[in-house]
Design a protein around this nucleic acid. Structure first.
Length: 272
DNA sequence: TTCCAGGAGGGGG
DNA sequence: CCCCCTCATGGA
């Protein structure tokens, strides 16, 4: 039995619900009064109680960093509210933090995310963990690259990954045979994207998501079908929308994109 | 039944 | 650079 650490923080304007449900992570479960969140080989229970954040884990420090509680989101939100197109989204939602997620886990998860929907993505990832990850009390760890070294494309297909099976197999092989995982965290945004694009199943959008959610390059603006619909004008390409977003929001582009994505989906009734 | 989802790869022009 | 097609799957 592992010892549990309990952390209590001022809630401030942090929104647990929006941070977890805005589509940056797929490994959480709603509980009666909070959330169970898994990352890497760790798990926490987190809840909002009486204007405080209650965090319980065998490694609370890991999740303190994971939720980016040291980040200055007051300044970021004040800045974003100045943009007319974001005022409503930031005011009505508010409190989204950009998570600091595990690199390998984020690469695999967002390869699975391509042309897919969130419930199905979560299911595939859960089965991946259950089948190949180490077992802890009450949950399965995300598998390490080594634990996936003998997994075949057919195995990924059997998980329900569909045509992404070959991408996953090739990318795990590439990561095992190169030092990319250890080199990526030291690179800047443009260099990290250039490296990530070498991986099978990683295009510009997925590379941007990995850069934002694992490498914390907050200047990037991932463009998916939702962002293109709500942000794009007639005739705009994905590249047009991305470049405009990055130029307009600067180092807050990633947070701006999360607000637009979450707000668009909530208003569409897709986030339930 | 058809359409869609946090798109990418591959081919061709 | 561009546009085109195809790729599993499950829910609406």
């Amino acid at each position: 039995m592992q010892s549990k650490e309990i952390l209590t923080l001022e809630k401030g304007n942090f929104s647990l619900k929006a941070t977890l449900e805005c589509g940056q992570t797929f490994r959480y479960r709603r509980r009666d009064d909070g959330y169970e969140v898994m990352s890497r080989d760790k798990r926490c229970f987190i809840a909002e109680r009486d204007e405080k954040i209650y965090l319980e884990s065998s490694d609370a420090a890991y999740f303190y960093n994971y939720f980016d509680f040291d980040g200055d989101y007051e300044t970021a939100e004040a800045r974003l509210k100045e943009f007319p197109e974001l005022t409503a989204a930031v005011s009505e939602t508010g409190g989204i933090h950009i998570l600091r997620q595990d690199l390998f886990e984020t690469i695999i998860s967002f390869i699975i995310s391509a042309n897919n929907n969130i419930p199905r993505i979560s299911g595939i990832i859960e089965r991946l963990c259950d089948r190949y990850g180490r077992k802890e009390e009450g949950y399965s760890c995300f598998p390490t690259p080594q634990e996936l070294s003998l997994v075949t494309a057919e195995d990924y297909f059997a998980l329900g990954a569909g045509y992404r099976d070959k991408y996953l197999h090739k990318t795990v092989k590439t990561l095992l045979e190169s030092d990319m995982l250890s080199r990526l965290p030291a690179l800047g945004y443009e260099d990290s994207v250039r490296e990530l694009l070498k991986l099978s199943g990683v295009g510009r959008k997925v590379a941007d998501c990995i850069s934002l959610f694992a490498l914390h390059h907050t200047c990037c603006y991932p463009v998916d079908v939702w962002i293109l619909k709500t942000d794009g004008a007639e005739g705009d390409t994905v590249a047009d929308v991305r470049n405009r977003g990055m130029a307009r929001y600067g180092k807050y582009a990633g947070l701006a994109q999360q607000y637009r994505y979450y707000y668009a989906r909530v208003n569409n009734g897709t986030n339930g």
